[in-house]
């Protein structure tokens, strides 16, 4: 393999994990921006998404587009309910809200463990086969992830820009008091935002399920990565989450390909710490009030 091939290959690899990280981080940062809650259960919604996809696609043999829609609906509604039932009463305090999400995470992960068992379940590919461009090889299943994730991110962006609810959410994120004065019903925005945030994580889970298989523990790593991405991009910043996700994906991919796994991991952390110290608000974050 020559260097160019290696670079192209790494670039595409980076894009796959990068878009997945971006999908995770958008939801994570959205909830933080709007509700000031660090959602430690975010990874569990990724896990639930992958199980919903597993059941609807691998067991019920529904078309994958349908699977995605069901995933969004199920997890979105569950998320809104959880916000309304459990997080709302605790939101007054950032720390309490954070610990509550931790409790939710423990409950969700172990419920999945009880119901589905620990062993990972493989899931058939949505599209299979390999694509070759000269010496560069990709699998269709990964290309599919990139395209689908890009479409979801695009749809989300349009929603935030054009729809009334999306604009209301942005207004709340910017300044809750001002939004209230504008007549935005903040209490209705919160469950909606939370539901949407976790639905995005679930979509990521559903998309990655055929690639990485499904188990109650699949959400842990994406959660930690979302954490890092959000620091990198700036807490509460959605463009920052997309940029940070892609950047982290690239750093991981190129770092691991060129220098090995351990160097890549260290590099990642060192970089993020450096960014935090020099520019605490991340690459695209706003200064906190």
């Amino acid at each position: 393999m020559d260097l160019l091939t290696l670079l192209v290959q790494s670039g595409v690899n980076g894009l796959v994990i990068g878009t997945m990280y971006a999908l995770m981080a958008i939801g994570f940062t959205l909830v933080f921006g709007i509700m000031r809650v660090v959602n430690f259960a975010h990874g569990e919604f990724y896990m639930i998404g992958s199980f919903v996809a597993f059941i609807t696609y691998a067991q019920w043999h529904l078309p994958f587009a349908m699977t995605l829609l069901i995933t969004i609906a199920v997890v979105g509604i569950a998320g809104a309910l959880i916000e309304w039932l459990l997080i709302r009463p605790l939101r007054a305090d950032e720390l309490t809200g954070m610990i509550a999400t931790l409790g939710i995470s423990v409950v969700l992960q172990n419920s999945a463990l009880m119901y589905f068992g620990a062993s990972p379940r493989p899931m058939p590919d949505v599209v299979s086969g390999l694509v070759r461009f000269g010496p560069v090889v990709f699998s269709w299943s990964r290309i599919f992830v990139i395209v689908a994730a890009a479409l979801v991110i695009g749809a989300f962006w349009l929603f935030m820009q054009k729809s009334r609810t999306g604009r209301a959410m942005r207004a709340v994120a910017q300044d809750r008091e001002a939004a209230l004065i504008q007549g935005i019903d903040v209490e209705r925005i919160f469950p909606f935002a939370f539901g949407m945030s976790v639905a995005l994580a679930a979509v990521a889970g559903a998309l990655m399920a055929p690639v990485f298989s499904v188990s109650p523990f699949v959400g842990i790593t994406p959660m930690l990565k979302a954490f890092i991405v959000v620091i990198l991009g700036g807490l509460g910043s959605i463009p920052g989450a997309v940029l940070g996700g892609l950047l982290l994906g690239m750093i991981e991919s190129f770092g691991a390909t060129l220098f090995g796994a351990l160097v890549a991991d260290m590099l990642q952390l060192a970089l993020v710490i450096a960014i935090l110290l020099v520019r605490p608000t991340g690459l695209m974050g706003r200064k906190e009030a």
């Binding site: 790494s10 190129f254 390909t257 090995g260 796994a261």
Partner: peptide
């Protein structure tokens, strides 16, 4: 040879590195 942390699921970058060594 390379090492990975337990719990890792995406090995493509590491495998690419090994494949490049023929």
């Amino acid at each position: 040879v390379d090492y990975y942390e337990r719990g890792r699921v995406d090995f493509v970058p590491l495998l690419t590195r090994l494949l490049a060594q023929g």
